[in-house]
Design a protein around this nucleic acid. Structure first.
Lengths: 229, 229
DNA sequence: CCAAAAGTGTTGACCGTACACCCATGA
DNA sequence: TCATGGGTGTACGGTCAACACTTTTGG
């Protein structure tokens, strides 16, 4: 480590994670009460400071693992927030990431964090600093991604029904979709494998379960696709 | 400034700018030879370190002004690059911005920077660090933006012909477009005002000049639109 | 037997795309 | 007069959006 850049000012860098889940037909976000000053006790995104020896992506992975117990989550850098006064404690630059979790996977690892809570997006409390703006931006990004990546599936259980998948898309895009058009389009991608089981909790008739075809899923996850309704 | 976060490590933050221009039917990028070690003399993006008292957006504006003399450029945050070893000199996090310049405006302010040079994208030299990756990402973003924002116009002179505009879109998207379809679609947005002048340098017949309608332009710049060919 | 959710096809409108010829003029 | 780039309209096919009824079964 040669001192090439001595004289230049250094900064604190935080990583904040917007973590989405989907449960009971609602899009939810994982928040916790901040553990230190300033704004101690207020609702906040999951976050932490960047350490000297980790890349920012790895810092995000560390934070995600710390609050969910899970690794290999879908995760994507969102934006870097750099207003001088965004943190009243001290100047901190924050790079935000958004991530997707299957809530039932999360529940299995009974979360250590008892201060954490899944909030339905529509009822979430006000957050500290510029975290509300981060959430807003993440929702926007999620909407875009739902149209060009098969990310919806990162949020559902491994087996799911078509109506469940539809209600996820409806939650993300905040509008109702025609079920005939939805089914037609999603099935025409040959991305779903129909199983011989039915989910019978939500209706008397029961709905067939599906899972996604890993090969096609992975290809679409890289190349992108187009799913507009 | 209370010492809330003492103990947390601080980092150098660089701002790097990918600056695009359009001239002679080609998409170009502004590069310069790095002025200090490591990699002194090699081709590099325009950049600098974040100062304590400026937001990252303002740092980008400062750098853009410094190398072009221009303010109020179109500018957008691209991505933050945070691998631990991306800069061999010392650990530096870099937030990249991309910006668009009208090359003729740039020329008027005869640039102070004699080490700067406009390179056609197709012929640009290899860059230091991860700057090539930044450029690649910026090109991708530019392609996306050309489809949902009227940014093309930030790159053209104030008066331009339809064929010029088309060749810009062709350069950004790296494919040829049908001129009838292009003209039909772009004119149907009522974004262009036809002038009573002709540009006669590039053809004997001459092509009518247009400028864009400020009102509609600004509305589209905010709300976005859809221009797919 | 009834309520509640699952499942199923067709049609019209619109949009993207392909395509070929005439025009104006400087040299 | 000819070479060069500017300018124009139409037809086809595919995709999106709107729309209503039958099926299953638990209570």
């Amino acid at each position: 480590m040669t001192p090439y850049y001595t004289g230049s000012h250094k900064h604190l860098i935080a990583i904040d994670c917007i973590i989405f889940g989907f449960d009971e037909g609602e899009l939810k976000i994982l928040l916790h009460r901040r553990k230190f000053e300033p704004e101690k006790g207020k609702w906040s995104l999951m976050g932490g400071f960047l350490q000297p020896d980790e890349s920012i992506d790895n810092a995000a992975r560390r934070i995600l693992k710390g609050c969910s117990g899970l690794t290999n989550l879908f995760m994507e850098q969102l934006y870097t927030f750099g207003e001088t006064d965004r943190d009243p404690g001290e100047r901190v630059i924050s790079t935000a990431y958004f991530a997707l979790i299957r809530i039932d996977d999360y529940n299995k690892e009974l979360s250590l964090e008892t201060t954490a809570h899944w909030w339905p997006i529509s009822k979430k409390p006000a957050l500290i600093f510029d975290h509300d703006k981060m959430v807003e931006m993440a929702l926007e990004r999620l909407k875009i991604r739902s149209k060009n990546r098969p990310i919806g599936f990162e949020l559902l259980p491994r087996k799911f029904t078509v109506p469940q998948l539809q209600s996820l898309y409806e939650a993300i895009n905040r509008r109702n979709l025609d079920k005939r058009n939805f089914r037609k389009k999603i099935l025409s991608m040959n991305l779903l494998q129909k199983l011989n089981e039915k989910e019978k909790k939500t209706s008397k008739k029961g709905a067939f379960l599906y899972r996604f075809d890993k090969r096609k899923y992975n290809r679409l996850a890289e190349k992108g696709f187009h799913f507009e309704l």
